[in-house]
Simulated assay, not measured.
Amino acid sequence: METIEVKTKSKQYPVHIGEGAISKLGHLIEESVPRCSSILIITDSNVAPLYLQQVKMELKDYQVYKWVIPAGESSKSLREYEKGITYALRCQLDRNALIIALGGGVVGDLAGFIASSYLRGIRFIQIPTTLLAHDSSVGGKVGINHSLGKNLIGAFHQPEAVLFDTNFLTTLPAREWRSGFAEIVKLGLIRDAEFYEFLSSNIESLPVKEELLGKVIKRAIELKAEIVGMDEREAGIRAYLNLGHTLGHAIEAESRYQSISHGEAVMIGMLYAIKLSEASMKRKIVTKRFYQWIEQLGYAFWHPTLNKSGLLLERMKQDKKNSRQQIHMVLLKECGEATLEKVEDQFILDQLSSFKAWVRGNVTN
Rank of each mutant, 00 (worst) to 15 (best):
M1I: 13
M1K: 10
M1G: 14
E2D: 15
T3I: 14
E5D: 11
K11L: 14
K11T: 09
K11F: 12
Q12G: 10
V15R: 04
H16M: 05
A21L: 00
K24T: 09
K24S: 11
L25T: 08
S32W: 06
I39H: 07
I42W: 08
T43G: 09
D44G: 07
D44R: 01
S45I: 01
N46R: 11
V47F: 00
V47H: 02
Q53N: 10
Q53E: 13
L59P: 02
V64H: 10
V68K: 01
E73Q: 06
E73F: 08
S77P: 04
S77L: 05
E82M: 06
K83F: 09
K83M: 10
G84L: 04
G84R: 03
L89N: 08
D94K: 08
I99P: 02
I100G: 05
L102Q: 03
G103N: 08
G105K: 04
V107K: 06
L110E: 12
A111I: 11
G112E: 03
G112N: 10
A115I: 08
A115V: 04
Y118N: 14
I127N: 00
I127L: 12
P128W: 10
T129F: 06
H134R: 01
D135C: 06
S136E: 08
G139Q: 07
G140V: 02
G140A: 12
G140T: 09
I144T: 05
I144H: 03
S147T: 15
S147L: 15
L148W: 11
N151M: 06
F156V: 06
H157Q: 11
A161Q: 03
N167I: 01
P173C: 09
R175T: 02
E176R: 01
S179Y: 02
A182N: 04
I184A: 07
G188N: 07
G188C: 09
R191D: 15
D192P: 11
A193K: 15
E194M: 05
F195L: 10
E197I: 04
S200P: 03
I203L: 14
I203P: 09
S205A: 14
L206A: 09
P207Y: 11
V208I: 15
E211F: 11
E211G: 02
L213R: 07
G214W: 00
G214D: 08
K215M: 10
R219H: 15
I227Y: 05
V228N: 13
V228D: 13
R238S: 12
N242S: 02
L243H: 05
G244P: 05
A250V: 01
I251P: 00
R256A: 08
Y257G: 03
Q258K: 12
I260D: 00
S261W: 06
H262P: 00
V266H: 00
M270L: 07
M270Q: 09
L271V: 14
A273F: 03
I274C: 04
E278Q: 15
R283M: 12
K284P: 07
T287G: 14
I294T: 15
E295R: 01
Q296R: 15
G298N: 05
G298Y: 01
A300F: 00
H303R: 06
T305N: 01
T305R: 04
L313M: 12
L313I: 08
K320W: 07
N322E: 01
V330H: 07
L331Y: 10
L332F: 12
E334P: 11
C335F: 01
E337G: 00
L340V: 15
E341K: 05
V343W: 02
D345F: 03
D350F: 07
S353Y: 13
A357Y: 13
V363S: 03
T364F: 04
T364E: 07
